[in-house]
């Protein structure tokens, strides 16, 4: 799940998990289905039982996401004790195994330590151990590496990827880093102003982005593939600022920043729709087909603007 800061990625993830702060949060429409089961409007107790067991989540800032006054062992063991009915002793032993699994050295010792005694990377490993404790089917990772330095970022991504593979677990990775997505994602959803504006598999997205916002994002980072971009071309950030979600522009929410905006964009909201038969390629733009057809040899957003 890709999108600028404030585009609603975390809110979406929290809605899926059922941990949205309500109030102020309110779900007015839509649907969240998990293994065919509709979750919006489901019994709260049912949703609670799904959390941890079927779906788990890790957060951007592990320091604030872990309770400062309990040992990491306590916080991991909690799930074994209160969801699996294990004794405190067995649960703590299992917690140490989990720490070992995410390769925290000296796990038996460190299980007694508190979050502030771990480094940033180790803390994120603790979060991962905690999320994996009940062996969930789906893990939502909300910008798990944003707060970490580059080498540690790579280690955490490797760990997530490895666990996903070994457990056959689904992973929803939330990020604003296009480079990270390119490496791990099968399918990518691009979010803008609280909505998904483009959704398809990674290869299609990179080859034939259908939404000008997706193009803008790609132009704003160094190209990962050599196929299209001009080497050494300057990086171009998407012009303008994302809208406040309390005052979303009418029509296409992206139109104030879009170089291709026409009158229809200001008046009519483009719903998310299938834009490329057979590729499961959805986009929310009136002119998506045109952009798909242009393929990778698209002109950069900025050139269109200045030209």
């Amino acid at each position: 799940m890709l999108g600028e800061s404030g585009s609603g990625k975390s809110v979406t993830a929290q809605t899926v998990m059922g941990i949205l702060d309500a109030p102020p949060g309110r779900i007015t429409a839509g649907s969240v289905r998990f293994r065919g089961e509709e979750l919006l409007g489901a019994d709260p107790e049912r949703r609670r039982l799904l959390r941890g067991e079927s779906m788990a989540m890790i957060f951007q800032d592990a320091l604030s996401a872990l309770n400062p006054v309990y040992s990491v062992g306590f916080q991991i063991a909690e799930q074994f004790r209160f969801r699996r009915g294990m004794s405190r002793k067995d649960a703590t032993a299992r917690a140490a195994e989990m720490l070992d699994l995410v390769r925290i050295p000296n796990a038996k010792q460190r299980v007694k330590e508190y979050p502030h005694q771990f480094s940033g990377g180790m803390r994120q490993r603790v979060m991962i151990a905690m999320a994996l404790a009940l062996d969930p089917d789906l893990l939502i990772a909300d910008e798990p590496t944003t707060a970490l330095d580059v080498t540690v970022q790579a280690q955490i991504m490797d760990l997530l990827d490895e666990q996903r593979r070994e457990r056959g677990m689904g992973l929803i990775l939330i990020t604003h880093d296009l480079g990270v997505v390119a490496e791990v994602a099968d399918r990518i959803a691009v979010m803008y102003a609280g909505r998904i504006v483009e959704h398809t598999n990674a290869a299609t997205l990179y080859a034939r982005p259908a939404h000008p916002y997706t193009r803008g994002l790609m132009d704003s980072v160094p190209r990962v593939d050599d196929a299209g971009g001009v080497r050494g071309a300057p990086l171009r950030p998407v012009p303008g600022l994302p809208p406040s979600l309390t005052a979303i522009p009418r029509g296409c929410p992206f139109h104030p920043r879009c170089a291709y905006a026409q009158d229809v964009c200001v008046d009519e909201y483009p719903p998310l729709r299938e834009v490329e038969e057979g590729h499961a390629h959805e986009a929310a733009c009136h002119f998506a087909e045109r952009f798909v057809a242009e393929g990778p040899d698209r002109p950069a957003t900025q050139e269109v603007v200045s030209g």
Binding site: I19, A65, P68, F82
Partner: peptide
């Protein structure tokens, strides 16, 4: 509103806990 409370909820603990 603390993040760690949200984590506790995300772990599927009961409201009471």
């Amino acid at each position: 509103r603390a993040d760690f409370v949200r984590t506790a909820v995300a772990k599927g603990l009961t409201h009471r806990r």
